[in-house]
Structure formats: structure tokens, C-alpha cells
Amino acid sequence: MDTSKHTLTTLFEQLGLPADQASIEQFVRRHAPLRQDTTLAKAPFWNEGQAHFLAEGLADDSDWAEVIDELDAMLRH
């Protein structure tokens, strides 16, 4: 079982995206603000695998849920 703490960096790595701080900030600038009526997993910038991972992580309240929520909040501001 993976007991490591998940961070935005590890989330971006899991999603197959550049995960350094500058890349994360650029991603957020490029895609924010996310419409209030769009769930994070349904955002148009995810591929099918990424969207599935995000939706499943939240639905299952997995150990990824907290950092997925953090990304969601960042994209809404």
C-alpha cells in the first residue's frame, strides 16, 4: 500500500504532466478559471485517462482526494 503523502507535484506526475512548480503554475494560469458548473474531471483539457483518475479519486474518497480538491480550488480562482 502506498502511504506517501500526495502533493500537487505527485498529482501532476500521476497525470503525466510536467510537475515542477513553474509548470504547475503555468497550467493553472492557462486553464483558470474553471466554470462553476463544470466538475474538475469534466474539464475539457483532460484526456480520458486523466479525467477518469480524477473522477475516481474523488468518488472513492481516495488518498488523492485532498490534493485533487486543492487543484480544483486553484483552478476556480
Results as ranks from 00 to 15, higher is better:
Trp64Phe: 06
Gln14His: 10
Leu11Ile: 13
Ala55His: 10
Leu11Ser: 10
Val67Met: 11
Met74Ala: 15
Thr10Phe: 03
Thr3Pro: 07
Pro18Trp: 00
Ala41Tyr: 11
Glu66Tyr: 11
Ala55Glu: 13
Ala43Asn: 01
Glu70His: 09
Pro18Asp: 10
Leu34Glu: 03
Ala41Leu: 00
His52Asp: 12
Ala51Asn: 05
Pro18Val: 10
His77Trp: 02
Pro18Ser: 02
Gly57Val: 07
Thr9Leu: 06
Gln50Tyr: 08
Arg29Ser: 06
Pro18Lys: 08
Trp64Ala: 02
Arg76Trp: 09
Ala41Lys: 02
Arg30Pro: 00
Gln26Glu: 14
Arg76Ile: 05
Pro18Arg: 05
His52Arg: 15
Leu75Ile: 13
Lys5Glu: 09
Ala19Arg: 03
Asp63Gln: 14
Arg76Thr: 04
Leu75Arg: 08
Ala51Pro: 02
Trp46Tyr: 12
Val67Asn: 13
Leu11Glu: 06
Glu13Arg: 14
Asp2Leu: 05
Leu8Met: 10
Leu71Ser: 07
Arg30Asp: 07
Glu25Gly: 01
Asp2Gln: 14
Gln36Tyr: 10
Arg76Gly: 05
Asp61Trp: 03
Gly16Glu: 04
Leu8Ala: 01
Gly16Trp: 12
Thr39Trp: 01
Gln14Gly: 01
Thr9Gly: 11
Thr7Glu: 02
Arg76Asp: 08
Ala43Ser: 09
Gln36Trp: 11
Glu48Tyr: 09
Trp64Gly: 01
Ala32Trp: 04
Glu56Gly: 00
Ile24Glu: 06
Ala65Asn: 01
Gln14Asp: 01
Glu48Trp: 13
Val67Trp: 13
Ala59Asn: 10
Thr38Leu: 03
Leu8Glu: 04
Asp2Ala: 05
Glu56Leu: 13
Asn47Ile: 09
Lys5Tyr: 07
Leu71Asp: 06
Asp37Val: 14
Leu17Val: 13
Asp37Leu: 11
Thr7Phe: 01
Arg76Pro: 03
Asp63Met: 12
Val28Glu: 01
Asp63Lys: 12
Ala59Pro: 00
Ala22Gly: 00
Asp69Gln: 13
Asp72Pro: 00
His52Trp: 14
Lys42Glu: 14
Trp46Thr: 02
Gln50Thr: 05
Arg76Phe: 05
Ile24Asn: 09
Arg76Asn: 05
